[in-house]
Design a protein around this nucleic acid. Sequence first.
DNA 1: CCGATAGATGAATGAGCATTCCATATTGTA
DNA 2: TACAATATGGAATGCTCATTCATCTATCGG
Lengths: 216, 216
Amino acid sequence: MKVAIDQRSQRKQREYEARREEILLAAERKFSQNGFFKTSMAEIAEDAQFAMGTVYRFFKSKEDIYISLVEAKVEELLRLLEEATQSRLPAQEKLRAVIQVKLAFADQNRAFFRIYVSEWSGFEWTVKSAFGERVWKRYLAQIDLVANLIKEGIKTGEFRKVNPKDTSLAFHGMLNSTIYLWILQSGPKESLVDKGKWLGSLLLDGLGTSTLKRSM
Amino acid sequence: MKVAIDQRSQRKQREYEARREEILLAAERKFSQNGFFKTSMAEIAEDAQFAMGTVYRFFKSKEDIYISLVEAKVEELLRLLEEATQSRLPAQEKLRAVIQVKLAFADQNRAFFRIYVSEWSGFEWTVKSAFGERVWKRYLAQIDLVANLIKEGIKTGEFRKVNPKDTSLAFHGMLNSTIYLWILQSGPKESLVDKGKWLGSLLLDGLGTSTLKRSM
DNA sequence: CCGATAGATGAATGAGCATTCCATATTGTA
DNA sequence: TACAATATGGAATGCTCATTCATCTATCGG
């Protein structure tokens, strides 16, 4: 008997999670269509096929939905990136791996990236909102991860001496703007992942033709 | 007599412009502090030291203020960039000039760039709003300008064969993310313009140390 | 099958805010 | 100075939501 109740409560647990997930998916669809401010709770509830009151059983506010949504995804991306750079390949290869992983992730999470790229700057949130901070932190974690890669590469002589953080920043800028335009113009014409190889080569070898390295 | 009236109306004209400008400046301050949605017309009016009704004599809506503001600046930037690339220096030098001009502009228009960088993606506006389109066009114009530069450089052999538009996009991403972080963290510690030289070198020579160009 | 508990519902509430509108003040004309 | 005409002021209007809550409904143990 005890067992039966346990199992039932497990089922309940699962169902709870599933519903929560439903709502997050609906929110993702809506937010990515219209942005945070132009999406109403009524719309989210309708898309998720729940009543508004019900939505509030899962999330305490609209902002809470948004935070949960973005945070989960950013964390996932960060985890993937960490995984991809755990190997002991040369730094150069790891850098290429980072590109691939991020592009692939964007490819598979197009709707989310609409939200992310447009909001990664987070200014609508201003300093006050806890949100900006939280997501911002993960973004900085990405920057740091790559910055460390670059440090590594400098040590092994693969990369020339640069400021790792600035370079990482520039690197992410390249990636994000590429992703962003691709999303905006996204016919399924060309694969995003395909651009990865060329981006890696631009970053490593530069645009110039001269084989003499400038002294800087 | 006719002349006197004419002069007076000229003065009126000037005063009108001056007031309009006042309002735009106030709006710039407010929008850059709190973003579009969290800035109220009351706040803008107060900051500009006008009553709300008066503000509406100059702009037909809140969105109109925003558009005017962003458009004017983006146009100015575009003009500066065009000017800087009119010369007949080698493409490489023009590219460096673009970097300098954009960084200097960001330096001098910090408040504006807060708005611009956070909104350049324009997603809060969605497709419907005419706004997104208008500003988006200018952004693409920037991309095109640099893409043409790159084409030029490829022709002269200064640059290797790349997709000009993709490269220009990556280039802008680099610039924007650098500008953005600088604005966020802006103590007046280091000059933004100083990063220009190094960004140019990263773009042209890449991160790698090997002097052999990869085959791609 | 019954009462009880937990879950779901969506209309009602209330706050925020863009926009309007008319009363007041300022400027221009004769 | 008096009479428009024009500019300014800011309270009042009306709308859009996020959030709440009184009311149903399904589920559960016995």
